[in-house]
């Protein structure tokens, strides 16, 4: 286990991974090489390829595949339980560039935001997702504006950093699958300040994406219904 640093704010980087043995080691190495050297935890979401074996980080192994949202939420709960000040997410497939994390965390350190999203659409550099996925993102942007008046250019981005207030909300309520848009609505409706930082995404270095055409359609339908129903729910309180 990594040693806690008492004085400076502590950050835990959560790396959810499902059968990403080929890429997760590099993601962890990149995160640990950052100037602040944050602690890293890999959440192995029931992999069968030895994901997490031998990586220089804490590894939490879910007993079976629980879904990306449940994996991320496990990391968030770990961060809350262990008293971390900030929690960030980097996907285990290597698409997220860890070097952008300091920019995200700087906004949290300065108290200018509760939740910072790394957006690939602010400056439109690097790997841009497929046409249908961009269309989906456009639809989700519209939904977000309608649901809570929040402007987010890349609502499906899995690259983010949160302070304890936002983490507490997500630790209590986070969808098991396709959680990103739902989470933004929850945070915005709870009064969290959401800020975007431009980032460059890479193509995945190994494995295949789980989002094919039927799943993309399910994603859009599921999130649309969840947002519609979500407006009827009482606001979440989270745990501190």
């Amino acid at each position: 286990m990594e040693s806690p640093r008492a004085a400076s704010p502590r950050t835990l980087v959560v790396v959810p991974a499902f059968n990403e043995a080929a890429s997760v080691g590099r993601v962890v190495a990149e995160a640990r090489a950052l100037p602040q050297a944050p602690d890293v935890v890999v959440i192995d979401d029931g992999s069968s390829d030895g994901t997490g074996d031998g990586v220089p980080a804490r590894v939490v192994r879910l007993p079976f595949n629980c879904g990306i949202g449940a994996a991320v939420q496990t990391g968030i709960r770990l961060a809350l339980d262990d008293g971390y000040d900030f929690v960030a997410r980097l996907d285990g497939d290597g698409q997220h560039d860890a070097r952008v994390l300091p920019a995200l965390l700087a906004l949290l350190h300065a108290g200018q935001a509760d939740f910072v999203v790394g957006s690939r659409y602010v400056e439109r550099e690097g790997f841009q997702s497929s046409g249908p996925r961009r269309l989906g993102s456009r639809w989700f942007r519209l939904l977000l504006r309608l649901a809570c008046g929040q402007q987010v250019s890349d609502p499906t981005s899995g690259l983010w950093a949160a302070n304890r207030r936002a983490a507490a909300l997500l630790g209590a309520e986070y969808a098991s699958d396709y959680p990103e848009v739902d989470a933004l609505v929850l945070l915005a409706r709870s009064g969290c300040r959401i800020v975007e930082v431009p980032t460059v995404m890479r193509e995945r270095t190994a494995g295949t994406s789980s989002i094919n055409a039927p799943r993309a359609l399910y994603y859009m339908l599921k999130v649309t219904v969840a947002l519609g129903v979500g407006r009827l729910r009482p606001r979440a309180l989270g745990r501190s």
Binding site: I43, R58, V59, V60, R61, L62, P63, F64, C66, A70, Q73, T74, R77, L78, D81, S176
Partner: peptide, 13 residues
């Protein structure tokens, strides 16, 4: 079930 799986994984770690 999901909560139990999460708690179990955290405790095991």
């Amino acid at each position: 079930n999901l909560r139990l799986a999460q708690e179990m994984a955290l405790l095991r770690e």
